[in-house]
Every structure is written in C-alpha cells, then in structure tokens.
C-alpha cells in the first residue's frame, strides 16, 4: 500500500511528466490528451466537494460545466465579432482575456449553483439526484434553443483566448495553465477539508442531527459546499471550451454530468486526488479503446462496476487503503 499523500504526489508528477515527454518527442496530441485529463479532473474536483465532503449526489453538474463553457464562448464570440455582449442598461464588451473569462465563468456558475442548491437541497436521496438532473436538462434544452449562440450547432471560437505573457496556442503552455489551476484548486480543497467548515460539512453528511444539536445548520453548510463545487466545475468548463475552441449543448448534457460523476467514483469519492485518477484513467481508456471500438463505454462500464463492487474507496482506496482521518 502506498500512503495516499505519496500517491497524490505520484499522480500529479505523472500527469506533468507525460506532456513534458510528449513535448520532447514532438507529440502535440498527447499534450492535448493530458490537458483534457487535467480539465476533466478539475471539473471532478469540483463535484467531489459536493459529493465527497457534502454527500450531495448531483447529477446536474453539467449545468456548471456548460455555464463555464458558454461564459467563455459568449465573451470570446463577441470579442471576435467586435460586437458588445449587451448594450442596455450598460455596455458589456466581449473579451479574449482568460482571467476575466474565468472570473465570469466562476461567478455565473456559482450563482446558478446557489439558485439550484436552494431549491434542490429541500430534497434528499433519489429526489435530489432527479432534481439536479432536471436542472441540468433545463440548461441543455435552453442552450439548444438559443439560436443567437449557435443553438444545436454550438459556437466556434477561432483563436484561443489570451493569458498575459504566454502564447496559449502552444499546447504545452495551455497545459501548464490548466495543470497549475488544477494544483491550486487541489491545494485549496485540501485546506478546506481540514478547516472548521470542512469538519462541519463532513459531519453534516454523516450525522446531520448531531450538527444541529451543536447549533450549526447542516443545510446551509451543504449549500455553501454546493456553490463552491459549482464554481470549480464552472471554471473547468471555461477551460474545456478553450481547449476545444468550441462550445455546444453537449457540455450541458446529462452524459456530461454522468461522466464527471464517473471520474469521482472511479478514482475515489472524498479522496483528494480521486477525481484526478478517475479523469486520467477515463481519458486513457477513451484514447486506447475509443480507437478500437465505438462501444468502448462498455469497458468503462465494466471497470466502474468492478470498482463500485470491490473497491469502495475507488482506485485511490484500492491502492492506499481506507481514508485516514486528518491528523
């Protein structure tokens, strides 16, 4: 067994080493794959805060992923067509600046998470799953009907957005941006898990009655976790759109929600780097098996089944054993 801390380090070093190797050997497509894995991992780290710490089984996280994506798409589209996003009551211009796009993506997805959370958290269990799924579907159908931004066809962005001091069109540079953000968010996630908030949230998942009897509101703790979760998944959505230079309603689809959840469960729910392991394994399978068969999801399904049946802590749990409570 490898201590979880070392495993986490190993996973991140590997995720960094592969694109560096690809850079030296001139394999830009591999760098793109690693970038895809890092972005999926980030989206899943977001879900893991709601699902792992808060016990909130959200099947609607595509909503936040898509909002982040469309935040990028809409802002960049207006920048490339030199039209304002809106003129009344005040003028908002488009932008090609990544930091501004990220901020907008996080604020809008966080706001959506607040509203969705306020309504969904009245329910629990299977109803919570269904209501979050329903919200995700609402965004999906809304985006399909939003003709101004491509409707069903989505929006293409011709040039990747800018980051101060970097040529973002160079694959390794864009990977570096995504990887850095992933590490930063993981670091923050680690701190949150050890904070008074993390402690209370963790208890709210396991024994909500207890949390109430010490004078804390478990629902409010979960709502804040849900918003935090949505903000991170929204940021990942903006990066994903930038990676593909394309956004479409697919980002809002329930399959996207399902995949984000698969990353978390496959890697290990509530484990810090579980989402990273899950996303990396997913992208590897997608690449290795996707070429062989259109139906590669069958193998993914089988793997997921095995993990759920025989490794309750996901792949991280399989390698590092049960979670040690924070020291």
């Amino acid at each position: 067994m490898i201590r979880e801390r070392y495993l986490n380090g190993l996973v991140l070093v590997l995720l960094l080493a592969v694109p560096l190797w690809a850079l030296i050997n001139d394999q830009p497509f591999t760098i793109t794959l690693a970038t895809r894995a890092a972005i999926f991992a980030l989206a899943a780290v977001g879900l893991n805060i709601a699902l792992g710490l808060g016990g909130l089984v959200s099947l609607g996280h595509a909503a936040f992923f898509g909002i982040g994506g469309y935040a990028m798409g809409i802002l960049a589209y207006h920048a490339q067509t030199y039209t304002p996003v809106m003129e009344l009551p005040f003028v908002i211009e488009g932008t090609k600046s990544m930091p501004i796009i990220w901020l907008v993506a996080m604020v809008t997805s966080g706001t959506a998470a607040l509203l969705i959370g306020l309504l969904s958290l009245r329910t629990t269990g299977v109803y919570f799953i269904m209501i979050t799924l329903a919200f995700g579907q609402m965004f999906y159908f809304f985006s399909i009907s939003w003709i101004a931004y491509g409707g069903e066809d989505g929006l293409s962005i011709y040039i990747r957005n800018d980051f101060p001091g970097l040529n973002t069109l160079v694959p390794i540079n864009f990977f570096a941006i995504c990887f850095t953000l992933l590490c930063l968010v993981l670091f923050i996630n680690g701190l949150v898990a050890r904070s008074p908030f993390g402690l209370a949230l963790n208890a709210a998942r396991q024994a909500p009655q207890r949390v109430q009897t010490v004078g804390l509101d478990p629902q409010r703790l979960k709502l804040v976790a849900f918003v935090l979760s949505g903000v991170i998944t929204g940021l990942a959505g903006a990066l994903f759109a930038d990676l593909n230079r394309f956004v479409s309603p697919t980002m809002f689809s329930w399959q996207t929600s399902g995949e984000i959840m698969i990353f978390v469960i496959l890697g290990g729910t509530a484990r810090l780097c579980g989402p990273v392991v899950g996303a990396v394994v997913f992208v590897m399978l997608e690449h290795a098996l996707g070429g062989l068969s259109e139906y590669w999801h069958i193998y993914l399904g089988a793997l997921l089944l095995l993990v759920v049946l025989f490794a309750r802590g996901g792949l991280v749990g399989l390698i590092s054993g049960r979670a040690v409570a924070h020291d």
């Binding site: 923050i188 701190l191 949150v192 904070s195 008074p196 908030f197 993390g198 402690l199 209370a200 963790n202 208890a203 396991q206 024994a207 009655q209 207890r210 949390v211 009897t213 010490v214 004078g215 804390l216 703790l221 804040v224 979670a323 409570a325 924070h326």
Partner: peptide, 27 residues
C-alpha cells in the same frame, strides 16, 4: 449520533466549532 468516519477528536471539535459559532472559515 456521531460522525462515525471521523476521529474522536473531530467529533468533539465539531462541538467546539458549534459552541464558538464559527464554521465559516475555509482555509
């Protein structure tokens, strides 16, 4: 009604956090 996956210390810490009324510290 305890947080069974948590340590003993974490369970009493939860009480202390509640008593002080300060769960809104994240980092």
């Amino acid at each position: 009604a305890l947080a069974m996956e948590d340590t003993v210390l974490q369970n009493v810490l939860l009480g202390a956090v509640g008593a002080v009324g300060s769960p809104w510290r994240f980092l």
